[in-house]
């Protein structure tokens, strides 16, 4: 039985109405299995960003079905979507999006503020955040403010934050877009390690090289997925 984390069927997203309607997504289909590392590529205007927003439950589709981790989320309201994001999606942004006045550890603990982890004591939550920072190699930077960290380090804090609620999916939007080659390689290394441990990762990128580090590349063009290729296919093609 194939265990799907993302199951998108005939997904449509239309902005505006009538003559001025823009069809960002046109009956798009996409499936991501548990434990897969998928890269989404596409030129600007292809609908890639819209797709990512819907996958991340930040936006809702106009039509179609989206089942995330066994749950239909296409019809949920704003409150319910917030809960789904909190529990099932770990976001990693291009610009890290850390709160500047909070320490690394407090930043990692942020998502716990919005769910049942509040039943945990402050120490328990701190400890979990510390463990995750240790996992991304920042065990000695717990109390540093984001401004005291390098870009790569900030992105690692963001990854720890994405992991804190044990999400079904890590959704990374251009995670290496703001980083130099060395830091990018480090960040990709962390993703590979998480993938090896069974994490499901969807990464949106425009960098060919980074995309091809993933197990599978999904090309989005004009609101549709074109020629999904596995690495094996690619090797065969080559």
């Amino acid at each position: 039985m194939n265990d799907l984390v993302i199951e998108i069927t005939k997904l449509t997203k239309t902005y505006g109405e009538g003559d001025i309607a823009v069809h960002a997504l046109k009956e798009l289909d996409l499936q991501v299995e548990r434990g897969e590392f998928v890269a989404i590529m596409g030129p600007s205007g292809s609908g890639k960003s819209t797709l990512m927003n819907i996958i991340g439950c930040l936006d809702r589709a106009t039509n179609g079905l989206y089942i995330l981790d066994g749950e239909e989320v296409s019809r949920l309201n704003r409150d319910q979507l917030a809960a789904v994001r909190n529990r099932k999606v770990g976001f990693v942004f291009q610009s890290y999006n850390l709160l500047p006045r909070l320490s690394a550890r407090k930043n990692v603990m942020l998502p716990m503020m919005y769910n049942g982890f509040q039943n945990w004591s402050e120490e328990q939550r701190s400890e979990r955040a510390s463990e995750l920072l240790d996992l991304v190699g920042l065990g000695d930077r717990l109390h540093h403010l984001p401004t005291e960290l390098s870009g790569g380090q900030q992105q690692r804090v963001a990854i720890a934050r994405a992991l804190i609620n044990d999400p079904s999916l890590i959704l990374a939007d251009e995670p290496t877009g703001n980083l130099d080659t060395r830091s990018s390689t480090e960040i990709m290394g962390i993703f590979h390690r998480l993938h090896a441990q069974g994490a499901t990762i969807v990464m949106v990128t425009h960098e060919q090289e980074r995309a091809h580090e993933a197990q599978r590349v999904v090309n989005v063009l004009d609101g549709r997925v074109v020629a999904p290729q596995s690495r094996i296919d690619r090797l065969v093609d080559a």
Partner: peptide, 26 residues
């Protein structure tokens, strides 16, 4: 959709069409 209920880990409860409501929030 509900046949694949995952065990609730600490601080987290499986979502069942809105039943999580009380658990979620600050």
């Amino acid at each position: 959709l509900q046949d694949t209920v995952r065990p609730a880990s600490a601080g987290r409860q499986t979502l069942q069409d809105g039943s999580f409501k009380d658990l979620h929030g600050m």
